[in-house]
Simulated assay, not measured.
Amino acid sequence: MAKKRKKNSGSGSSAVQRRAQIQAQAQLQSRSPQGAGGAPAGGAQSRTPSSSSTSTAGTSPKSVSTATVRTTTRTEASSRPSSTARQTQRRYTRQRVSGRTRWLIVAGALIVVLAIIGGFIVLSQQHSSSGARGSTDPEVLKTVTSVDSNLLAQIGTGGQKSPLKAVTNRDRLVGPHGKPEVFYWGAEFCPYCAAERWSLVIALSRFGHFSALPETTSSSSDVYPDTATFTFYGSSYTSSYIDFVPLEVEDRNQQALQTPNQEQQQLVNALNPSGGFPFLDIANIYMSQGQTVDPGLLSGLSQKDIAIQITNSSTSISKSILGVANYLTAGICVATNDQPASVCKASFIQAIEKQLPRAALAHSDSLAVNLTSLSAGLPPDNNSRQRHGYRTN
């Protein structure tokens, strides 16, 4: 009986050892990467304590540590990208950088282009504000060169005083093409010239056509500064009835612009001895000097603003500009013997003609003066203050 109990005791000791080995093996697997998620939980090693498991459980800590390091190293090595993968990644990175660089170059070029465009816009606005010559808005040009005859008839004289005076005892003024000449003497800086040009352009457009008529403004430092207007410098006009000869003697800065020839200077000296601006001679039959349209009416208005108000018969601008234009039209009709009839035979023009004074002309046609605007001749008088007698300063 004693022997039997001893045998059972040894068997129990053996079972305890096996359990300890199994626990040691489980602890070892939990420490290793495979134990964490490498080998399946239901694998053969975890189910049956095989001899290899027993051997592993019985190994020393040093051998276990070595096995763990080797397993970890293999895992890290497998997680590193291969050489091909690294090359692909570098190529992709370079492509991304290259693409970004191209977009940056494109964006920079766009910024430069926009800056250049903005600079041109600013410069154009500066030129416009400083009164530099430029192209007249086509709509404005159309408005002033094709005023409805019904509107002109409705305005009549507009309650304005006639700006025309009779020229006495002078030969008929004939232009470069043998037609009655309308001679204009003005300056771009002059605000009174700026106002008169509106009426003169409207009147002349009834006898011919402007194919070019630049815009500008009067001087910024004179009375009625920056009055919106046109300039006859650089203009182009054709007519079957009259020769229009304009001279813009000075620019906005009162610098010499166009020089009169000897005959033109003699005419100015005879009929406009002060040399003041503006001066208009209609074939040596009628002339006007100084203000014809009040530039104060146009103060602060743009070309387009003025053009719009001209078409409204109830405005002071319309009555003033169109009233003076009708007076000038009637004076030119006298010079052309009422041609064209479609313009000069209108009842309101005939009524105005009857109000105009008449004077006898000299009888020597051979002495008729032939003026041209581009010939070289005597320079204008340099005494600006005397010549610009309208000045208030």
Rank of each mutant, 00 (worst) to 15 (best):
A85Q: 13
A85C: 05
A85I: 08
A85S: 13
R86H: 11
Q87G: 13
T88H: 11
T88I: 09
T88Y: 11
T88C: 05
Q89N: 06
Q89M: 08
Q89H: 06
R90P: 00
R90G: 00
R91W: 03
R91F: 02
R94P: 00
R94E: 01
Q95D: 02
Q95K: 10
R96Y: 02
R96L: 14
R96F: 09
R96V: 12
V97A: 08
V97N: 06
S98P: 00
S98H: 10
S98L: 10
S98F: 08
G99Y: 07
T101I: 12
W103L: 15
L104Q: 15
L104G: 14
I105R: 14
V106H: 11
A107G: 15
G108A: 14
L110T: 12
L110G: 15
L110Y: 07
L110C: 15
L110P: 09
V112L: 15
V113F: 15
A115E: 06
A115P: 00
A115G: 12
A115C: 08
I116D: 15
I116T: 15
I117P: 13
I117F: 12
I117Y: 10
I117S: 12
G118R: 00
G118C: 02
G119K: 00
G119W: 04
F120A: 07
F120P: 14
I121H: 03
I121E: 07
I121W: 04
V122A: 10
V122Y: 13
L123D: 11
Q125C: 01
Q125A: 05
Q126G: 03
Q126F: 08
H127Y: 05
S128A: 13
S128W: 09
S129T: 08
S130K: 12
S130P: 00
G131Q: 04
G131C: 04
G131E: 01
G131A: 04
A132P: 00
A132F: 01
A132K: 04
R133L: 02
R133P: 03
G134W: 06
G134E: 14
S135C: 01
S135P: 03
D137N: 14
D137M: 03
D137H: 01
P138W: 01
P138V: 01
P138C: 06
P138Q: 03
E139S: 12
E139P: 00
E139D: 13
E139Y: 00
V140R: 03
V140L: 04
V140G: 05
V140Q: 07
L141R: 01
L141I: 01
K142I: 02
K142F: 04
T143L: 08
V144F: 00
V144T: 02
T145C: 09
T145P: 04
T145S: 06
T145N: 09
S146F: 08
V147S: 05
